[in-house]
Design a protein around this nucleic acid. Structure first.
Lengths: 354, 354
DNA sequence: TTGTAGGCGTTATCAG
DNA sequence: CTGATAACGCCTACAA
């Protein structure tokens, strides 16, 4: 730690030789400034900077030196105007702190990188207003947007200004936009079959907070309960204010109050399910002995808790990659994939909690 | 699922009225095309699109209709060329799958959003080559870059082309770039004091893989060991191939082979520490009874595992925000903050594992 | 090897 | 209220 406040970052301070103007202000150096300083034409500067051939090594060196002196960097705007082909995608995520989303994002970034696209990321922190602001920004800066949104279709459209949009995790019939979905119905079918097969009849659900309408997992849960002839209805579903462990803990608290006879719970996601386990155990119920817990997402975290979480595992990276594929189709004017082709299928991973 | 493959995404397919050219190809509509279709000048289109005043409501409507028809969107490049002030930062992250980084990223995004900046994110998956590619890209597209890098300063500089860089998690004396650091020495001082205070003398470390040089945590660990007069040296440190739970598991395996007499381990990060716990328990050692485990990072995951992980907690969001602050200084030509002002201090959070 | 002319798509300025 | 004209910074084509 000694000498810690010695002169550092010198590299950064040394530069900043901005061009002084008549008005007293300064601007960044342009190709013109470099040309003047080096005593050549702008064209020659361009050749040197983009190291094309057709230039005398000596002049090239002189030009490069001038550029260095002025801290010249080509304007990405001017360049983009002339050289077409730079694709920028926007990625809108509700909450980077939920491990689910970074994994989707990783898939998006990976696929984007392969195509040579860049990705501008926004974290809306699950806030409707911020969602709209993100769209306002991206509608200007991105060629397409992919993400999770709570706002409804027409609101999105209004803030999109015509930029193509790919929605994550919405079934096609729920939106007029292109989408990449999750087969919630199929997942819940397997999940509930597992629970019922283990003898459970009094199954509760800790739902996420899906805004005005009931989400697909909610619907699918009820459908499966009906199908198995369970005596389970809306009263067995409690909503989580937050899609997090604490959200799950609180919701489980309420579920146990309202339906103390419950023997199994299905969590909207793994975080919530983990919260459910914690509350259950704190209130003296063994998991899975007294209460079975089933999650949804397949976070790697689920394998680390105790008991390890049984869950409906999703290939989140693939979700992200698929989304980029959809974007590519839209950009090519091809029309998005639909139905099963744009679906990720949950896979039941049985561990200790159910 | 019924009717799932019905006509959807119609909204997307309907548009794409690109401008046909003499060469048979098609391009996106420009302001010029709209002007022609609406029978006005480009200027009027501009006024309508950016809804400035000074335009007849009727013409405005006509223009907007034309724009809609042609699916016109202003070119961000042309716009950027004329309107200054759009700031884009690049964020380079080694591994989005490690919960540490999304949290830093969240801090960066938050601070950037407040300043009205956009952030282009790259995930290098801890690959040196990808690091360089990311820089190549960002040096063209970003006004500044912040991130984690394994490549050395001069390599970075070479791929940076003069774009300001803020390094995350490197002490100033280790780099000529601006940086935001972590007070590893201070953290380890408290951590080791805790372990030694509990009577431990045979303490091992599961180090991360910090490339050629030994990282600050490594150094600090040895320094503290010395200070407490422990009989501990390099032989008590084993490196993890991966900064992950499995990486930690494997490393712990090796440590137990080489130093079975160990009574406490310090993990390079929480993931590794969790891996250590798992291996220890699998090999029949109680945690913390037979083996105390101390992590570094303070991931929320640590509170979920059993026993809950004692750790040196970092404010990762703050780390990200600080980085953006550094960028702002560089962009303003101010010279970066240095030393304690650009530091995040680990705080010992004692839980059950040590 | 180097320089000149023109255009990329948009907005600002200043006439009409 | 509307329309010329001139930048913005760079690159491609062509000419010297």
């Amino acid at each position: 730690m000694a000498g810690y406040s010695s002169s550092v970052g010198a590299d950064q301070e040394r530069r900043k030789p901005r061009i002084d103007q008549s008005d007293g202000l300064s601007r960044r150096a342009t190709i013109h400034d470099v040309a003047r300083l080096a005593g050549v034409s702008r064209q020659t500067v361009s050749r040197a900077v983009n190291d094309k051939g057709e230039i005398d090594p000596a002049t090239k060196e002189r030009v490069l030196e001038a550029a260095r002196l002025l801290d010249y960097r080509p304007s990405r705007f001017a360049r983009g105007l002339v050289r077409k082909g730079t694709v920028t995608a926007g990625l809108v995520i509700p909450d980077l702190m939920n491990p689910f989303f970074p994994e989707v994002a990783a898939g998006v970034l990976e696929a984007a990188e392969q195509r040579g696209w860049q990705v501008v990321v926004c974290d809306t922190r699950s806030d409707d207003a911020r969602e709209r602001e993100a769209l306002d920004m991206l509608s200007h800066q991105a060629d397409a947007v992919v993400g999770y949104f709570k706002n409804e279709d027409d609101v999105l459209a209004r803030h999109l200004g015509g930029v193509p949009l790919v929605l994550l995790e919405r079934g096609p019939q729920q939106t007029r936009f292109a989408a990449v979905g999750i087969d919630a119905a199929g997942g819940l079918e397997r999940g509930m079959a597992h629970l019922v097969g283990a003898g459970h009849r009094r199954i509760g659900m800790l739902d996420g907070d899906r805004g005005p309408v009931r989400g697909p997992r909610h619907e699918a849960f009820l459908a499966q309960a009906r199908r198995h002839g369970l005596d389970v209805d809306e009263g067995w579903i409690v909503c989580c204010a937050e899609h997090s462990v604490v959200g799950g803990e609180a919701a489980m608290e309420r579920l146990l109050d309202v339906r103390p006879e419950v023997t199994a719970v299905f969590g909207f996601n793994d975080l919530i399910a983990v919260g459910a386990m914690r509350t259950a155990r704190r209130r003296g119920r063994e998991v899975p002995g007294d209460l079975a817990v089933l999650g949804f997402d397949g976070l790697s975290l689920g394998a680390l808790v105790e008991p390890a979480l049984t869950t409906l595992h999703l290939d989140k990276r693939r979700l992200g990659r698929l989304a980029v594929e959809q974007v590519a189709r839209l950009l090519a004017g091809e029309g998005p994939l639909v139905g099963e082709d744009a679906w990720v299928i949950p896979e039941l991973v049985v561990r200790a909690s159910a």
